[in-house]
């Protein structure tokens, strides 16, 4: 048996799983080879010391505390899982019921307010004097006076002052609804038509 072969059998020898015939051959080699003997001695010493390597002993108190922490963490996980597993239950049992109640209350309040407004209108109408005919209605006119002469021939100039802006705004009231600025006739045309 060579040294190389001996070392290849070392692990099985240490673990006690080497066949008897190989053990005999290995021992025969060890008797003659100091180097391999040293190697085997060293390997045995390492293995024996590894077997004796003490585990830390943190005490029973530590293990109880660790268990409590694990159970607290898994309990928290369990609650999260349950909340995710049963969203329909949560919604139907609590959430949906409160939603329905709120919607019903809103509808009832709206209906009562609408009824009150309607009955008030009917009441006021019954209390008022008789209906007026077209001829009996008072005829009134709204006069709006705006001085636009200052803006004559100034269509293409930049509007700068507040006074100018106010005058244009008042002119808009005469010309049409808000937003029609620039879409209707020009200022000159308006002024000419007014004259």
């Amino acid at each position: 048996m060579t040294c190389r072969h001996t070392l290849s059998l070392l692990d099985d020898f240490l673990d006690g799983s080497l066949p008897d015939s190989d053990v005999i051959a290995l021992n025969r080699h060890l008797d003659q080879c100091e180097s391999c003997r040293q190697e085997i001695h060293q390997a045995k010493a390492v293995k024996e010391n590894l077997e004796k390597l003490p585990a830390q002993e943190p005490g029973e108190e530590y293990f109880e505390e660790a268990s409590r922490l694990i159970l607290a963490r898994t309990g928290h996980l369990n609650r999260i899982e349950n909340a995710r597993s049963f969203p329909a239950y949560d919604k139907s049992a609590a959430y949906q019921l409160s939603e329905a109640k709120t919607a019903f209350l809103r509808s009832a309040v709206s209906f009562i307010i609408a009824l009150f407004v309607l009955s008030s209108a009917v009441y006021i109408d019954t209390q008022a004097p008789g209906q007026l005919t077209e001829n009996q209605r008072p005829q009134s006119k709204l006069y709006v006076s705006v001085d636009l002469t200052e803006l004559q021939n100034a269509d293409n100039e930049i509007i700068v002052t507040v006074a100018e802006q106010n005058k244009i705004a008042r002119g808009m009231l005469l010309m049409g609804p808000p937003g029609s600025l620039g879409r209707g006739p020009t200022l000159n045309q308006i002024l000419q038509s007014l004259e």
Partner: peptide, 20 residues
């Protein structure tokens, strides 16, 4: 596993040579 064990033991022997 056998290979890892063999290599690990050899390394340990080398590191601990003549120190045990």
């Amino acid at each position: 596993v056998r290979s890892n064990l063999h290599i690990a033991r050899a390394k340990l022997r080398k590191i601990l040579k003549s120190r045990l």
